[in-house]
Design a protein around this nucleic acid. Structure first.
Lengths: 145, 145
DNA sequence: TTGCATGCATTAGAGCTCTAACATACATTC
DNA sequence: GAATGTATGTTAGAGCTCTAATGCATGCAA
């Protein structure tokens, strides 16, 4: 019996929380007709106009091909526009359109509501403690690779 | 400025921990040539032979179509076999093959190693506290929907 | 018996995610 | 100037994930 009960596995609980988070944010983004990854990209784009797709991928914590997929869908919807960079011809500058900004703001309202509800489940001390413990999780797991 | 800084969002940290967890488990499952969802299904199948796909989906926390995809890939690899139920003709009983059990055990060794490394980053008190806080996260988020 | 409810399985379609590989463009160094 | 290195962008392929819809089987109730 080298195995481990699911209840004892910290990973199980992390996964469960993440699933609930994704479901809640998905519902919150639904009125804006965007997915959670799309919302994340739009949010960063509002803050850093003209950013490259690779840099945006790093901010969102995904790989460049993944961001490429997300941006392609956003472009088809007319939420972003991509223009060649003046000097670095290989770089595409990505910017929000007016429709993209509107969608971002609508989705953001829902996302912030979810975050506030989540934060309300904890005292300020607990919140900071949770963040600290989660940080240690990521650290330990990254070191394991 | 109704927005919220990413650092203040608990969700950001949950997501980051989950991503690190997935990456670590993925690497741990690589020697067995299975993905993390495949490993999860194999693990439950070892414990509950003959379970239905829908029940397995509930245990793994995914939808039936998702589990269908995972099982299809496992079946193509010869890791599981599915036979019609004696009475309920519409139900397929799923069981591990010998190769499936071997793959599960190999992947489980890696997964348990990851979990132990993760647990080692905390004291017993911290571990229980983290689990408790994560549980409250899931609870608050589920209530939000 | 007929109808309804429940549950399982599956398909279709959209979208995200990764690794691997390749092509391009700029920057630095020899 | 040429080679190397770094960064970006893209394509290909595999796999996971969801919602929505459909078909089938079983069991219960009118």
């Amino acid at each position: 019996m080298t195995s481990m009960a699911p209840e004892e596995r910290i990973g199980s609980h992390v996964k469960r929380a993440e699933q609930a988070l994704l479901a809640a944010k998905n519902a919150a983004c639904k009125p804006a007709a965007v997915t959670v990854p799309q919302y994340a990209a739009l949010l960063w784009l509002a803050e850093k106009p003209g950013i490259s797709a690779a840099a945006l991928a790093r901010l969102c914590g995904v790989t460049p091909p993944t961001m490429n997929t997300v941006l392609k869908n956003l472009q088809e919807r007319g939420f972003i526009e991509r223009t060649p960079h003046e000097w670095h011809r290989n770089v595409l500058e990505t910017r929000l359109t007016d429709a993209g900004r509107a969608a971002m703001e609508l989705a953001d309202a829902g996302a912030v509501r979810v975050e506030r509800a989540l934060a309300a489940a904890f005292t300020e001390e607990e919140r900071q403690l949770l963040i600290e413990l989660l940080g240690r999780c990521a650290e330990a797991l990254d070191a394991e690779r």
